[in-house]
Amino acid sequence: MDGPTPGNPLPPPRVPPHADVVFTADFGSTRQWVAGRTWAYPDSGPVNPGDDKLDHLVPDAAYSRSGVFRATRRADGYWDTGLLTTEGSEEAFTVRSGDILQARVRLPGEAGAWPAIWTWRDGDQEIDVFEYHPDHPDLLEFGNHVRGAGHSFQDAAVRPGAWLDLRTEFGPRSVVWSVNGAPVFADHRGVGHGWHAYLIVNLSVSAGRYHPAPAADTTEMSFEVSSLVVRRPAHRDAPCAGTRGSTLRDDRAP
Rank of each mutant, 00 (worst) to 15 (best):
T81G: 10
L84C: 04
G109L: 12
L83N: 05
G123A: 04
F153P: 01
D128K: 10
G109P: 07
W114T: 01
Y41S: 11
F153C: 01
Y132K: 01
D60M: 05
Q154T: 06
Q125V: 00
P137N: 12
G109A: 13
P134I: 09
T86C: 05
V47A: 12
A103P: 00
T119R: 02
G88Q: 09
T81M: 09
Q154E: 10
D60W: 14
D128W: 03
L83P: 04
T38D: 11
A71W: 01
T38M: 02
F153T: 00
V146Q: 09
E87N: 13
S44E: 01
E131A: 13
V58T: 15
S66N: 09
R74P: 00
W39A: 14
A92C: 08
P160L: 07
R37L: 11
P115H: 06
L107T: 13
R147W: 03
P108K: 13
D55S: 11
E110A: 15
P160A: 08
K53M: 12
V68Q: 12
A62G: 13
T72P: 01
K53V: 01
A116T: 14
D55L: 12
D138L: 04
Q102T: 15
A40I: 07
R96K: 15
L83E: 09
W39M: 08
E91T: 12
W39S: 14
V158M: 03
P108G: 06
G77W: 04
D51V: 00
G45L: 08
R74G: 00
A71Q: 06
E141T: 09
G77D: 06
K53Y: 02
F130P: 01
H145M: 09
T119H: 03
N48D: 14
D51L: 02
V158F: 06
A156C: 02
V105K: 13
D52S: 04
E131H: 08
L57D: 00
G143M: 01
P160K: 04
R73T: 04
P115L: 10
L140D: 05
E110G: 05
V47N: 10
T38H: 01
K53T: 07
G161T: 08
G109C: 10
P46F: 04
D124Q: 07
T94H: 14
